[in-house]
Design a binder for these strands. Sequence first.
DNA 1: ATCCTTTTTGAAAGCGCTTTCACAGAGCTG
DNA 2: CAGCTCTGTGAAAGCGCTTTCAAAAAGGAT
Lengths: 343, 343
Amino acid sequence: MPVTIYDVAKAAGVGISTVSRVLNENSNVREETRHRVLEAIEALGYKPNILARNLSRSHVQTVGVVLSYLTSPFQVTVLQGIERFLAQAGLDLTIFSMESPKRQETLLENLSHGRRCDGLIVISFTPQERFLQRFQRYHIPVVIADFRDERIPSVFVDNVEGGYLATKHLLGLGHRKIGYILDHTEPPNGSGGNEPGADRQRGYQQALLEAGIPFDPRLVAESGLHSRQRGAAAAEVLLNRGELLTAIFAASDMIALGVMEYARKKGLRIPDDLAVVGFDDIELASFAGLTTVRQPMQEMGRQAAEIVTWLMQGEKVLRTSCQLPVELVVRDSCGALALLERR
Amino acid sequence: MPVTIYDVAKAAGVGISTVSRVLNENSNVREETRHRVLEAIEALGYKPNILARNLSRSHVQTVGVVLSYLTSPFQVTVLQGIERFLAQAGLDLTIFSMESPKRQETLLENLSHGRRCDGLIVISFTPQERFLQRFQRYHIPVVIADFRDERIPSVFVDNVEGGYLATKHLLGLGHRKIGYILDHTEPPNGSGGNEPGADRQRGYQQALLEAGIPFDPRLVAESGLHSRQRGAAAAEVLLNRGELLTAIFAASDMIALGVMEYARKKGLRIPDDLAVVGFDDIELASFAGLTTVRQPMQEMGRQAAEIVTWLMQGEKVLRTSCQLPVELVVRDSCGALALLERR
DNA sequence: ATCCTTTTTGAAAGCGCTTTCACAGAGCTG
DNA sequence: CAGCTCTGTGAAAGCGCTTTCAAAAAGGAT
C-alpha cells in the first residue's frame, strides 16, 4: 500500500540506487535523470520510510535527554533550550525522567544498550563510569548540562562565582549572620563530578572569608531536594538552631521560595526580618520578587545540544566544555532596592 | 563487532527463527531449547538491535507528544503524567513543541508522514482534519488532552462546571461586578473543538444568570496567551474600562498571577481591593495563595497516555473520551478564608 | 509397530532503505 | 581509431530482525 523506493524507481524508469542517490543529494546523477526521479517522487507522493533508513544507516535521528525531575523548573527550562536547538536541527528529542536514583540505574542500563538515541544530554548529574564506557563503545556521545565533569563535554556556570556574588551582596547590605541552604553535598549515587551546591558553598565561604567572618557550619543546612517543601523544612531547621540569622542564601530558587514560605508562616517579614537570595532565576523568582543569581538556563541547553550534535557528526570538538556566565539579579527579597531608594 | 541474532543461533546450535521465538516469548519452543538459547544470549551478552526490530515490525515503540509551549506549567504537568505512564509501559516519549501556529503546520506535516511515533498525544488543541486523516491512514492513533473533540478520543475536564464553581464562589462572597479574562475564544488556527476558555466563560455566565446578574461583555477581556505578562496587560485593560470590578476570574493561574502582579503594582490589595481566582492549580498557585479551580493535570496526561497505548495495540476503545473532575481550591486571594475566620 | 496429530524447528523470504561494485558509455589523448 | 579515464547507472548485497512455510521430531492411539 505505501509507496516505496521501488515504485518510484519503476515510475521514473531507473534503478533504486539512482532514486536513493537523488534522495540523498548524492552527486553523480545526470540533471535530466534527477529531474525524472523528482517528478516521480512528486507524482506518487513518496516519502522515504524512516525505519528502513534508520536500520540501513544505523542511527535514529534522535537525541535523548535524561533529567531527574520533570517537575523542576530549572531542568525544564534547560530542556526548552535543548528542544529549540534540536527542532531546528531536524532531530527528534526523547526524554527520560529518572525520578529516583534507582530508576536512574535501570534507565541508563537500558539506554546504554540498544541504540535508542544517537546522542545523549544529561542534566545535573554524571552517569557512572560503566555507563559512560558503554556509550562510548556504541559511539553515542554524551554531554552534561549543569554539571562539570572533566571526563565528558559539559556546559555549566561558575557556581563558585555565583555563590560569591550572592553572599557578597548580602554582606554589602550589612548582613553578618548569613545562612546557606544547599540541596546536597554528595550526589545520591556518588558518581563524581562537581556538585553545584557544593561549589556555591565554596563561593559563599570565600565571600565570608574576605569579609573576615569565620565560617560557621551551623549556618548551613541541606534540603536534599530542590523543592519548596524541603526548602521550608531546611529553613525551619536553620532558623531554630539558636543562631540569629538575618539572611539566607539558598542554592536554588525553589529552596528560597520554601524559605520565604516558612518565614511568612512564622510571621517573619521579608526582607525586613529576613533577607533571602536564591539561585537560577526561574520564572517564579520574578513573581516572588526574589533576588537571585541568574544562570542562562536556556542557553545552557542550547549549548549542550549544539555540542552533542557536533559530536554525533563525528567532529572532534576541541572546546569540550563550556562555562557560561552568572549574574546577580536584584529584586526585593533583600531590601537592597529599598535601601537604595532610601538614599 | 556487535553480536547479532546469528551469533546467538550459532552458539546455541539452532536457527535464528528459534532465537527470535524465545526472544519474543513465542510459545512452541521446547523447554530445553529455550534454555540453550537463553544461555547463549547470556554468554554473548546479546541485545536485539532495536532498529532492525522496528523495521521488521514497522513500529517505533514511541509516542509523540505535541504541545504548544514547554514554558506552560500546565502543559508540562500534563506531560509529566504522560511520561510516568509511558515509562512504566516501556514506551519512549518524544516531544514536539510548536511555539507558533505556523510551526504547528510544518510540524504536523512532517509528523504525519514518516512513522516517527506509533501514537500521538496532542495537548490543548485539535489538529486540522487533513492531518487527522493522514494519521488515520497510517494507523497512528491520536488522542487529545485538555480539549474536547467529538472526532477523536479526548480527555478533558468539565470547563463549564469549573467556570461556574469559580464564579459561584465569588458570588457567594458578595461580589457582583466580576470580570473574566480568558486566553482566546477561537483557537489561533481555527480547527474546531471546544475551547476551554470559552467553556469556562459559559460557566461564568451561567452562574451570573442564576444570581440574576446580567452578563456584561465589557467585563470580559482576552489575554491571548497564558502568561503573566499577558494576564497583567488584560487586567489593565479590564480595570481601566471604567467599570468598578471587585473580582476577576481568570481562565488560568498564569493569567491570574499576572492580574495579581498588576494589582500589586497599582497598589490594589488582594483580596481586600480585588479578589482573584484562577484555573488549573499549578504549583505556583499554592505559593501565591491563589484560590483556583483545580484540574487533575497529571491524571489527564496519564489517561491520555493509557488510551493511546490501548489504541496502539489495536484495541477498540469504547470509552473514547473521558471527563475528569474539577475542584475549587480555596486559598486567600478572595478573602474567603478571612471571611470564614471572622465568623 | 504403524499411522495420524501435534509440536518444534530451520530455511528462506521479506521489511525498505543505503552502499558497494562492476559495467556501459562518454570524453580524451596520442 | 585504439586505449584510457571518467561519469552515470543498475544489480545485488547488506542492515538485523520477524514471520511464513514446510519439513522433522515427538506423541498418541490403535
